[in-house]
């Protein structure tokens, strides 16, 4: 009995302390503005029901064509609702605006910046994140030094902007100042595109939850993938009847 209550009370205490800490942090920063990820179920994974402004978000993708960009673009589209444009920092020159238009991003609210080198890219990211007139900043970033991360995070915090970064999955081991880090793994199934999104890291929680999402490539709509029953269960049920 005693053995049971002790961990219980301890976990209660930890939860309470965490709650108090969170409140203290919030009181200092003011109530954070939250941007939806474009998918209600994904929002539920994050405390505050969405990505808070003034932070950085990372989407790790195992390779090209994984769908991480579309998920990030969906967040950018949601961020635009409060006004201001999305700044896409596109060093590779690969960003394709017609696809963004198909994903219902308003091209009038899209600014594409094409820096020529890594130093300019960092500078452009810093300037855009620092500007109060911007809704979100989207970037395909291969490699960012820890110091740069910190600088960008401070910039985002100062203006309350959202920085969205799509990075290769090899960056998983790197330290990061991102508030939220998702791992996006495409699932080879069905007609609809299916992505498994794992919440690798979320400041203040342990992370580790996964969610299967369906992505409609044509409209950019993200929704929870319908859960299929376990084949064994189906077989058993069929046998029973």
């Amino acid at each position: 009995m005693k053995q049971n209550t002790l961990p219980d009370s301890r976990s209660c205490l930890v939860a309470e302390l965490k709650d108090r800490l969170e409140r203290l942090v919030q009181a200092r920063r003011g109530a954070p503005q939250v941007v939806s990820t474009g998918c209600e179920d994904l929002d539920k994974l994050i405390p505050g029901r969405g990505l808070s402004r003034g932070t950085l978000v990372e989407w790790l993708a195992p390779g090209p064509g994984s769908g991480a960009g579309s998920l990030a673009l969906a967040v950018a589209r949601e961020a635009c609702r409060d006004g201001g444009p999305v700044v896409v920092v596109d060093r590779a020159g690969c960003f394709y605006p017609p696809a963004a238009a198909q994903a219902r991003v308003d091209l009038d609210r899209l600014i594409v910046v094409r820096p020529a080198n890594a130093a300019d890219e960092t500078w452009a990211l810093d300037q855009s994140l620092r500007s109060p007139g911007v809704a979100a900043v989207l970037c395909w970033a291969e490699r960012l030094a820890a110091r740069t991360w910190r600088r960008l995070q401070l910039a985002a915090e100062s203006a309350g902007n959202l920085g969205l970064f799509i990075r290769p999955a090899t960056a998983r081991g790197e330290s990061s100042w991102a508030n939220v880090r998702f791992l996006v793994e495409p699932q080879p199934t069905g007609h609809q595109r299916r992505l498994r999104v794992e919440l690798l890291r979320l400041r203040g929680t342990s992370g580790g939850q996964t969610l299967d999402l369906e992505l409609d490539d044509e409209t950019g709509v993200v929704r929870l993938a319908p859960r299929l029953a376990d084949p064994a269960v189906v077989r058993r049920a069929a046998r029973a009847s």
Partner: peptide, 20 residues
């Protein structure tokens, strides 16, 4: 926004800060 566009265009060049 104007301040940002001015700064970006002035360092990166006006041809690099674009609208689609």
């Amino acid at each position: 926004l104007a301040a940002l566009v001015d700064r970006l265009s002035s360092r990166l060049g006006r041809e690099q800060v674009l609208r689609a």
